[in-house]
Amino acid sequence: MSAPHEPLWSIGELAERAGATVKTVRFYSDRGLLPEAARSSGGHRRYGPPALERLRLIRSLRGLGLPLPAVRRVLEDEDAAGPVLETAVDSRLRELGDELRTLRWRAAALELVRDCPPDRRAGRLRLLGALSTPPSTAPLARFWRAWLPARMPARATAAFLEVAVPQPPDAPRPDQVLAFARLHAMTTAPCPDGRRPQPDVHRVAGARGAALLYAGLAEAFALAAAPVRRAQDPRPGEALDAYVAAYASAYGSRDTRGFRRLLADRLAAEARLDRYWELAAVVLSEPGGPAQPTPGSADDWLRAALRQDNAAAA
């Protein structure tokens, strides 16, 4: 109800004062968001100053993109500028972040199609058509779960996936969109025998040995990351020692000169995923910045360091 001597306005007068349309006022009023101060003798709605303030607040919230349920929760809160509003704004910010990320991926994909030679556009469109926008990393994770030894502990698997699966950038360049699309195509392509080729060490080590192997490799790759980033030549040292120790633990052996020679031969005969790591490096790259190390580039550096170490000891 209105206070004594409080002005009362018709729906049209309220709309005019708020700079809104009568249809807008009626919409919010029908949904119980605008308080009526009274009704005329003919049953027409009458509104007072609280309704004008409420209408201005509603339009501000709607202008920020808040949905009606969130607007209602804010209006029902005793403190209109309190935690309910803060929660609603945070939620909307997250939604906008997701929308902006989607738009950036679409824009980069459109640039990729526009700028490629006409005879390649059909192929690019097929690659891009298989991706969600922004893309999911789930196919890449499934690829690696099939690659890793069966029954490997969940914690070890999760730790490996964290470094092996590149996260799509929020604002990608066209070349990063293409690289991720090719990664998606590579990891979803069927294998002739139904399973990815795997290193021989997986079979030898078993689940427990594989967990030790990948924990040790993670340490070795972390140690090799700095020299890889600085493009330093491979060399023996702490990183190589950790690398060899990881394989020695998996094979149930010790780090000896003979084992290092044997390991180099075994690694040379292993199945490789070079193309995966090349594409992953593009996805992770920064314009004009140093190459970002990947498990693949760190492994290449460490293998070269192992060969150099063996040659020096021969």
Rank of each mutant, 00 (worst) to 15 (best):
D170T: 13
R121F: 01
P117I: 03
P166I: 05
A154L: 11
R151H: 15
E162I: 04
P168C: 07
R126N: 06
L140F: 06
R124F: 04
R121D: 04
P153D: 13
L110Q: 12
A109I: 03
D119V: 10
A141N: 03
A109W: 00
W105D: 00
A154N: 04
A130P: 11
V113R: 02
T102C: 09
A156L: 05
A158W: 08
P118C: 04
A146C: 11
L131N: 12
L103P: 00
A150G: 13
M152P: 02
E111Q: 15
R104A: 10
R151I: 04
P169W: 07
R142C: 07
P149F: 09
P134S: 05
L131P: 02
G123P: 04
T157K: 08
M152H: 01
L140E: 03
A156M: 13
A107D: 09
G129K: 08
P134V: 05
A156K: 00
C116A: 15
R121W: 01
T137G: 06
A171N: 11
D119G: 03
S136W: 06
P118W: 09
W144P: 01
R121Q: 15
A159N: 05
V163S: 10
A158Y: 07
A159K: 08
A108Y: 12
D170G: 14
E162C: 09
A150V: 13
A146S: 14
P134N: 04
E162D: 15
P153I: 10
L128H: 00
T157D: 13
A171E: 11
A164F: 12
L161S: 00
A122N: 04
A109K: 00
P149G: 01
A150H: 10
A158V: 12
T102M: 07
P117L: 06
A138S: 12
L110P: 03
A154I: 05
L127P: 00
A154C: 07
D170A: 15
V113T: 03
A159M: 07
P134G: 01
R142L: 12
E111M: 10
A138H: 11
D115C: 10
A150Q: 13
P153M: 11
T157L: 13
S136T: 11
L148R: 00
A171H: 09
W144I: 07
A171I: 04
A122R: 10
R114E: 14
R120L: 13
A164E: 09
R155I: 06
F160S: 04
R145I: 05
G129H: 08
A130L: 10
W105A: 01
R151S: 14
C116H: 06
L128I: 05
G129E: 04
A130S: 14
S132A: 15
R101C: 10
R121V: 01
T137S: 12
R124W: 05
R145W: 08
L148A: 00
A109V: 03
A138M: 10
R101E: 15
A122Y: 04
P166C: 09
L148C: 02
W144A: 01
L148V: 02
E111D: 14
L131M: 15
A156Q: 02
P139H: 11
T102E: 15
A159P: 06
L110Y: 09
T157E: 15
A107S: 13
L161T: 02
L131C: 09
R124M: 14
P166M: 12
P139C: 12
L140I: 11
P135K: 02
A130V: 09
R126Q: 13
A146N: 12
A159E: 12
